[in-house]
Structures are given as structure tokens and as C-alpha cells.
């Protein structure tokens, strides 16, 4: 376990070298945050101060938390491991005495957690200052929120890793990646809260792990979902994470066997 902690710490440190890029990302986040709050708060207003359980305060919290999380979760790109799988360089990684899957994910999660400092917190800061987002006054939602956030970040990187393992069998996984990007952008609740979806789309979304990446952590952290319901969301996240890790482990083993049998 110490090994993964160190890899995680290294990922955290590398990321700190890209501070200018992080601040640039923050500016883009803030712009999108302002655009999203404009239309979503109008929606709440038109609905008489509440829509799908959101008040102006919790809707603003949704906007700025979702923008703030963008630097930490990965729903767009393939992880570094995918490139190594595609090129066959992963064969070298198998020789090291660490688990290829966990090492790759730990590195990405380290970077993701670091990004909370230059991108996550300031984004929330902008939200509090500019639009007056509501954040819970008790301590418990923050504790549960931190757990949920970490699970969400870990889940996003575990799913990205799983996507990358398709490279063991497919020559070109770009098509798959594009499909993943499109679907996850909508279903994680990045573009609009999942709870605003028409019923049929909501059912589809909840049957996938995507809401557990962003929507659940935001709900728990903003105090929109509390108590036993919040614990249920966290349990669902943990379940999805276990599933994604197990699937990734199986895919990695099968892929490794294929590499060893066919020599890449």
C-alpha cells in the first residue's frame, strides 16, 4: 500500500508544476460557471423559486461545484496507461513489482486531488462571491462530501482506465473514446443536473456509473442530499468503484495474457 501512496504523492507534485495551466483552466471554468448560472437560476426563478428540488442557492452550488470538479475528474481523455497499452510499452510495466492498474489510477487520482487546490477551491470561491451559492452550515455534509468527492474522482479515473484497456484488443479506440466523451459529458450531470432530465433519460443515466462521478458528490457536498440518503449515494459510488476496479483488473489480466501469448 505504501507504494501506491508514494505514486499518488508524486502525481500530486508533478501537477503542481502546471500552475499557470491550472489558473488558465480556472478562468475558463469561471466563464462557463457564469453562463450556466445565468440560465439555471432563471429556470429556478421561473419555476417559482424551486425546480426539481433545487433552490437558487443549491443550483448555484451545483454550477460552481461542477465547474470546480472539472480539473479533478477525467471524463474526456484517455489516461497515460491507454497510450502504453496501445503501443505495447505496458509489457515493461508488467515487469515492475506494482499492480499496473492501481499504479496508473493512483497517479491520476493524485493529480486530480491536487487540481482541487488551484481549480476546485477558487471556482467555489468565485461562486460564493459572485452568485451567493448556498453551502451547508453543518460539518457533516463536508465530511461525507469529502468522501464522496474522493470516490467520484477515483471512479472517473478507474472508468477511464477501463476504457483504455480496450486497446489490448482494438487497434483504434478513438471511436470508442469519442462515444464515451459524448455520453459521459451528458450523463455525469456536467451539462445540466441529472435531476432535470426527462424521466426516460433519468432512468438511463441512473443505470450507468456516470452520475456517481459528479452528480452524487455535488449533491452530498452541497447538502442537497443529506442523512441516510447521502449514505446511500456514497454506498452506490463505492459499489460502482469496486465494480470498475474489478472489471479493470480482469481486463488487465486478460490483456496481459493476450500480450504474453501473442507477443503484442
Amino acid at each position: 500500500m505504501r507504494v501506491y501512496a508514494r505514486i499518488l504523492a508524486a502525481g500530486f507534485r508533478t501537477q503542481s508544476r502546471y500552475l499557470p495551466a491550472a489558473f488558465a483552466g480556472l478562468l475558463a471554468n469561471a466563464t462557463f460557471g457564469l453562463l450556466k448560472s445565468g440560465i439555471l437560476l432563471t429556470l429556478v426563478d421561473d419555476g417559482g423559486g424551486e425546480i426539481a428540488g433545487y433552490t437558487a442557492g443549491t443550483m448555484a452550488a451545483y454550477v460552481w461545484l461542477s465547474q470546480g470538479l472539472l480539473g479533478s475528474v477525467n471524463i474526456w481523455s484517455l489516461p497515460g496507461s491507454a497510450e502504453r497499452i496501445k503501443s505495447g510499452a505496458i509489457a515493461v510495466d508488467f515487469l515492475r513489482p506494482v499492480d499496473v492498474q492501481l499504479a496508473g489510477i493512483a497517479d491520476d487520482v493524485g493529480r486530480g486531488v491536487f487540481a482541487l487546490i488551484p481549480r476546485g477551491l477558487p471556482s467555489v470561491g468565485v461562486g460564493v462571491l459572485v452568485v451567493g451559492m448556498a453551502m451547508p452550515a453543518q460539518v457533516l455534509p463536508y465530511v461525507l462530501g469529502a468522501v464522496s468527492l474522493l470516490l467520484g474522482i477515483a471512479l472517473s479515473h478507474s472508468l477511464a482506465y477501463l476504457l483504455g484497456t480496450a486497446g489490448f484488443w482494438l487497434v483504434e479506440i478513438r471511436g470508442l473514446q469519442v462515444l464515451y466523451m459524448g455520453v459521459s459529458g451528458l450523463l455525469t450531470g456536467l451539462m445540466t443536473p441529472v435531476w432535470l432530465f426527462p424521466d426516460w433519460l433519468k432512468v438511463i443515466a441512473l443505470a450507468t456509473p456516470f452520475p456517481a462521478v459528479m452528480m452524487y458528490p455535488i449533491d452530498v457536498l452541497s447538502g442537497r442530499t443529506t442523512g441516510a440518503d447521502a449514505l446511500w449515494l456514497i454506498a452506490a459510488q463505492a459499489g460502482w468503484l469496486a465494480l470498475a476496479l474489478a472489471a479493470g483488473q480482469v481486463a488487465t489480466r486478460l490483456g496481459r495474457r493476450k500480450l504474453e501469448v501473442q507477443g503484442g
Binding site: Y18, P20, A21, A24, G25, L27, A28, A30, T31
Partner: peptide, 9 residues
């Protein structure tokens, strides 16, 4: 090193 700034507009 901060080209994402232009993403904003």
C-alpha cells in the same frame, strides 16, 4: 503554458 485561457472566449 496557459493556452487554455483562450477557451474562455
Amino acid at each position: 503554458n496557459a493556452e487554455q485561457v483562450t477557451n474562455a472566449f
